[in-house]
């Protein structure tokens, strides 16, 4: 096992400052990837929207604007609590951080609940991804976004537990900040999805 411990120590030799800036840059790169992953859907949206404007006008009224707006507010609020959580841990306030992350998680769950009601209402009205191009876009864009909400929630869950265990301090809190970046991306994407899908004039 002497070998294993040698291996284990491996990778921990990085200067903390380098590790911090590397992790942040790494997450930004990953967010770039995510933007281009959604990019295919945005491109499809642009093309079909330009091709079939009437379809988009007629069918978007089926979407529940109020639920969409509520979810927008929830996500923006969760972004606020996440950002405050990062600042809190940078000041070493572990308890405040834990509470703020917990609120963020609850917001994310709330978002999921609203989305669940939205989806079930659609299915109830026999609207499925193959109903039309517009609803294909609706389900795929919000579905892929929902997947990211779940991944974000998993990350936040881990951060919450680790914060409670006191793993993060004013000196070491890279995972909180980097995890926070990911959560903000979820918000960023939704900022575009909401008007594009729910608010077509």
């Amino acid at each position: 096992m002497g070998d294993a411990s040698l291996e284990h120590s491996h990778g921990h030799h990085m200067d903390p400052a380098v590790e911090y800036s590397s992790s942040k840059l790494g997450m930004w790169l990953f967010l770039g990837t995510e933007i281009l992953l959604f990019g295919g859907l945005f491109a499809a949206y642009a093309i079909f929207r330009a091709k079939y404007p009437e379809m988009f006008f007629e069918q978007h009224v089926e979407l529940n604007k109020k639920m969409g707006a509520v979810n927008t507010c929830i996500l923006i609020f969760s972004s606020l609590t996440m950002a405050m959580g990062v600042s809190a841990i940078q000041r070493g306030k572990q308890k405040a951080t834990a509470i703020l992350i917990l609120i963020t998680i609850l917001c994310g769950l709330g978002f999921g609940v609203v989305k669940y009601f939205e989806y079930s209402a659609k299915f109830h009205h026999h609207i499925y991804p193959d109903t039309s191009i517009f609803f294909s876009l609706y389900f795929l864009m919000t579905g892929l976004h929902m997947l990211h909400v779940f991944i974000g929630l998993a990350i936040l869950g881990v951060l919450f537990v680790l914060t409670l265990k006191g793993k993060f301090t004013a000196k070491y809190n890279t995972p909180v900040e980097v995890g926070g970046l990911y959560w903000h991306l979820v918000d960023l994407i939704w900022i575009y999805l909401f008007p594009l899908l729910y608010l077509i004039g």
Partner: peptide, 19 residues
């Protein structure tokens, strides 16, 4: 990532009937 989403769209085309 662009080929990723493209292949996902192809998969949904075959499984969910996306068009």
């Amino acid at each position: 990532p662009v080929v990723g989403i493209t292949l996902l769209l192809l998969i949904t085309e075959r499984t969910l009937g996306v068009g």
